[in-house]
Amino acid sequence: MTQLILFNVFNGLIIGAFYALMALGLSMILNLSGVINFAHGGFLAIGAYLAYSLTPYIGFWGALAVAPILTAIIGLLVERVLIRRLYGRDPLYSLLLTFGLAFMIEDGTRYLWGPETLPFTIPDWLASPLSSDFFFLTGYRVFMVVLVLVTVGALFLVLNRTRLGIRIRAGSDDLETVSVLGVNVRILRNLNFGLGIYLAGLAGVLAAGMLGLQPTIGNELIMPSFVAIIVGGLGSLPGTLLGGLLIGVASGVTAVFFPSASEAVIYVMMGLVLLIRPRGLLGEEGRVL
């Protein structure tokens, strides 16, 4: 029993790491640009499929390094051509636009790579379990958790220590003042969008190694990412990280006792948070109204 619970807690942590990676990107874009990027799951799928197509040429490690960057470049272009036009307009329009984009990306990947689940090969030594007692602890899973932690650490370093990061955070608080101080807000939003999409692309490569590739691979991750943002607290990136891990573990533990509710439990958590603490666990006061 302990092993089963441990297995599910660890599983939940991995899923939670995915949620967090997705939700951090979504949250950054939402905070700075006021855009809910519905197509975030689509970008995740693009990252995964690009990695699949690149692996025969540059290997797993090469794909892991290159595919998220290519995804981010696509993201930069999409922001430049489409999303930029909608800043300052009713948020409804950016929602609808990214919604349509999500449809197009899903159908596009299905058209290019086919509807069947494709296998994504990872290096052998990563695929084997670390010990026979803890069969679920494959090297790949541990590797994923470590990589996500390193990425998130690097992200927070960028946001807190580099000029770009500090400007992104300042702009999330008060874009007008940042603009008046001479920062090019257009470029800032563009780079911020690209950074968020990079995280989605990275999540896509990692998810491909665990789940295999499907055009709908991002769909199951996007709703929990919304929940992670709300549970963690609007406007707070550490909150988003915490929210992602928390709901991942919660759904993992629920899967032990009541498997059919493992998806619903995170929405119950969201309801409780909204009831007791509407601004979220680490959310700033006054963001809600």
Partner: peptide
């Protein structure tokens, strides 16, 4: 799906 998505955009 692509056409509906394009329609949205």
């Amino acid at each position: 799906m692509s056409f509906i998505g394009l329609f949205f955009v």
